[in-house]
Amino acid sequence: MIDLAWVNSVDINLPSVKRRAETLSSRRTVKKQWQAAWLLRAVTCIDLTTLSGSFSNREDILNGLNFDDVDLIKCGAVCVYPAKVRVAVKTLKDIGSDIPVAAVATGFPSGQYSLKTRLEEIKLAVLDGAQEIDIVINRELALIGKWKELYEEIRQMKDACGTAHMKAILAVGELGTLTNVYKASLVAMMAGADFIKTSTGKEATVNATLPVGVVMCRAIRDYHQRTGTKVGFKPAGGLRTSKDALLWLILIKEELGNEWLNNNLFRLGASRLLADVERQLFHYVYGRYAAISELPAM
């Protein structure tokens, strides 16, 4: 149920958020074998938007890292458009993979469709086998402060998901202020979101930034403290390098704790990130960076 008193009482201190984000990016780092271990963890948290590659085919790198259980190193989910869910589910089943299929829905990336159409798209994706649904919230309702109406929409989307996990995309670059980001995070969690996600990756301005991450993680932490419910977090948009992955893992560890450092509660929406992670791990094992021909095309 929505708690409007809580939502309306929110006021974010922007300078404090920026100072916290700068501290994370300037004073926290991991090196050598610890960096390799954290990058392997990052791989398991990536939501891939392609079926063309898998890290698990690089057994030479895993052997060089003295990592024996190849099956543990697989991405968090494969994310596709609703029309591709059925073929993605079949493809993964045919190769014996238990990686879940996630579908972007509700008129991704704009979300500017009738509610009836958005709900039907969710139901069809679930019917075709999607185990996770990434929905887009109605940013107009957030911008004009109609939080109860936004809650009701997201609640209906959650109902349409059935047993599938729902990730609520806030599209933070279109919410105007960090106060709105926090409020939208709360409303999505109150409506039953299993994850809150920064961006579609298609916004023209802000996608996943550390200040946004701090605010959303604080909302998750506050919500957990008040309700006992753990909600996951997914940054997406603009994440391309291993350094990006490490910064987000550090943010999660420091703001939410080790319980969130797994793909049940943390995902990275960044398929191109995988290539750079593999490049860095190759360097760690072989002492040099791989030629283009030595890495699979993504």
Rank of each mutant, 00 (worst) to 15 (best):
V206F: 09
K243N: 14
K32N: 12
G162V: 04
K31S: 15
G53I: 15
A103I: 02
R41K: 15
G269H: 01
R272I: 13
G287H: 14
G213Q: 03
L256A: 03
K123P: 00
G257C: 09
R267Q: 02
I2G: 02
R221K: 15
T44I: 11
D47C: 04
E259P: 04
K18W: 08
V126F: 01
T227L: 05
A160Y: 01
V30D: 02
E278S: 08
L72S: 14
I133D: 04
G96R: 06
T179F: 14
L178S: 07
F282E: 02
L115R: 13
T227C: 08
S110K: 08
E278I: 11
A125W: 00
E278K: 03
F67A: 15
L65N: 09
I46C: 09
A291K: 09
C45F: 13
P15S: 13
N263C: 15
P15V: 04
S54I: 06
G145E: 12
R27F: 13
L14E: 13
A275R: 12
V10D: 11
V126Y: 02
L170V: 13
A291S: 10
E174M: 09
A130S: 05
S56Q: 15
A164I: 01
E140I: 10
L178N: 05
F282P: 00
M216L: 13
A291N: 14
Y151T: 02
L124E: 06
S293T: 06
P296D: 06
V277I: 09
R221P: 02
Q225K: 15
V214N: 01
V214W: 02
L239E: 03
L150S: 05
R267S: 01
K183T: 09
L65T: 04
K123H: 01
T227R: 09
I144F: 12
V7Q: 06
K158T: 01
K167N: 05
R20D: 05
L295A: 11
V285L: 04
P211Y: 08
E203F: 06
V136R: 00
A208F: 04
K202Y: 15
R139I: 14
H224F: 07
T163F: 11
A204K: 11
A164N: 04
G232Y: 01
Y113C: 08
R86K: 14
D276V: 09
T179Y: 11
S9W: 14
S114D: 13
D194K: 04
Y182K: 10
S56N: 15
Y289R: 14
A142E: 07
Y182N: 03
A102Y: 00
